[in-house]
C-alpha cells in the first residue's frame, strides 16, 4: 500500500516539477529577450560567444559534414545505379543534406559541442557564486552572462548548418565525380533542376534557426537552473545534451510536417 502511495507521490512530483520547469523556461526566455538589448549594444560580448560556440565548432562541423557527404555519395550511388540513374546522385545528396541532415546533424553536434560547454560554464559560475556576486554589484547576470551566450548560439547555428550542407555536397561530389566517375555536368545540372531555393534551401535555413534557438535556450537554462554542486553541474550538462537532442528531433518532425507535406 505504501509502495503504491510512494509511486503515485513521485509521479505527481515529477509532473508538477515538469510543469514548473516549463513555466520557468518560458519566463526565462522572456527575461533573456528583455535583457538582450545589452548584448547588441556591447557587441563584443556576443562576438566572444560566437567565437566560443561557432568558430570552435567549425572543425567538427566541417569534418562530419564531409564524412556524411562521402557516405551519402557511396550509399546513394549503390542504390541509384541499380536503376541506371546514377546521375541523380547529386539530387539525392543535395536534397537530403539541405532539407534534413544539414540542420539536424549540425544541431546535434552543436548541442553536444557548444551547448554542453555553455551549460558547464554558467553552471560553474553559479556554483562558485559568481552570478550572485554580479547581482550584488548591480550587474544583471542574465544581461551580462546569459543573453550573449544565447545570441551567440542563435547566430552561429544557421551558419554552421549551411557549412555542414555545403561540405556534405562537396563530399558527395568527391565520391561521385572523381572517385566513381559520374558525369560532372549531369551531377550539377540535375541537382540544380531539383533543388529549389525557397522550398528546399530556405526551409532548411529556417529549421536551423529554430534548432539554434531551442539548443541555445536549453543550454543557458540548464546552466542557470542547475543545482550548485559538482554533481548538479554534471547532471545539468547531461540534461542539456539529452533534452536538446530530443527537442531537435521532435521539432524537426513538426517543422517537416508543415514544410514538406505534399
Amino acid at each position: 500500500m505504501r509502495m503504491i502511495a510512494n509511486v503515485l507521490r513521485s509521479l505527481g512530483h515529477r509532473a508538477v516539477d515538469g510543469v514548473w520547469r516549463l513555466g520557468f523556461i518560458a519566463r526565462f526566455l522572456a527575461m533573456v529577450l528583455l535583457y538582450s538589448g545589452q548584448s547588441f549594444r556591447r557587441v563584443h560580448l556576443t562576438i566572444r560567444e560566437i567565437y566560443f560556440s561557432g568558430v570552435l565548432s567549425l572543425l567538427i562541423i566541417l569534418v562530419s559534414g564531409l564524412f556524411v557527404g562521402l557516405v551519402l555519395g557511396l550509399q546513394g550511388y549503390e542504390t541509384l545505379q541499380r536503376y541506371g540513374s546514377s546521375e541523380a546522385l547529386g539530387v539525392l545528396v543535395a536534397l537530403s543534406l539541405t532539407r534534413e541532415l544539414g540542420p539536424v546533424v549540425a544541431a546535434l553536434l552543436f548541442a553536444s559541442r557548444a551547448g554542453s560547454a555553455v551549460t558547464a560554464e554558467i553552471g560553474l559560475m553559479k556554483t562558485t557564486e559568481q552570478l550572485t556576486a554580479m547581482d550584488m554589484m548591480a550587474v544583471n547576470p542574465i544581461a551580462r552572462v546569459v543573453a550573449p551566450r544565447f545570441w551567440g548560439g542563435v547566430i552561429s547555428m544557421p551558419l554552421l548548418a549551411a557549412l555542414f550542407s555545403a561540405m556534405g555536397v562537396f563530399g558527395g561530389w568527391l565520391i561521385g565525380v572523381p572517385f566513381i566517375g559520374v558525369d560532372d555536368g549531369a551531377f550539377w545540372s540535375q541537382m540544380q533542376a531539383a533543388v529549389d531555393f525557397r522550398y528546399d534551401i530556405l526551409n532548411g535555413v529556417i529549421k536551423s534557426v529554430v534548432f539554434g534557438v531551442a539548443v541555445s535556450l536549453i543550454a543557458v537554462f540548464e546552466g542557470f537552473d542547475c543545482v550548485p554542486t559538482a554533481e548538479g553541474v554534471s547532471r545539468a550538462i547531461t540534461r542539456t545534451v539529452v533534452s536538446s537532442a530530443l527537442a531537435i528531433l521532435a521539432l524537426d518532425f513538426v517543422l517537416t510536417s508543415f514544410m514538406f507535406r505534399g
Binding site: I47, I50, Y51, G54, V55, L58, A94, T98, S156, P158, L159, L160, A162, L163, S165, A166, M167, V169, W188, M191, Q192, A193, V195, D196, F197, D200, I201, V205
Partner: peptide, 23 residues
C-alpha cells in the same frame, strides 16, 4: 576569427543558393 567564421558561413549559404539550388 569571428569575421572569418561569418564570412565562410555566408559563402556556404551562397554556394547552396547559387550552385546547389536554382536561384
Amino acid at each position: 576569427w569571428v569575421g572569418f567564421f561569418v564570412a565562410i558561413g555566408i559563402a556556404a549559404l551562397l554556394f547552396l543558393a547559387l550552385k546547389v539550388g536554382n536561384l
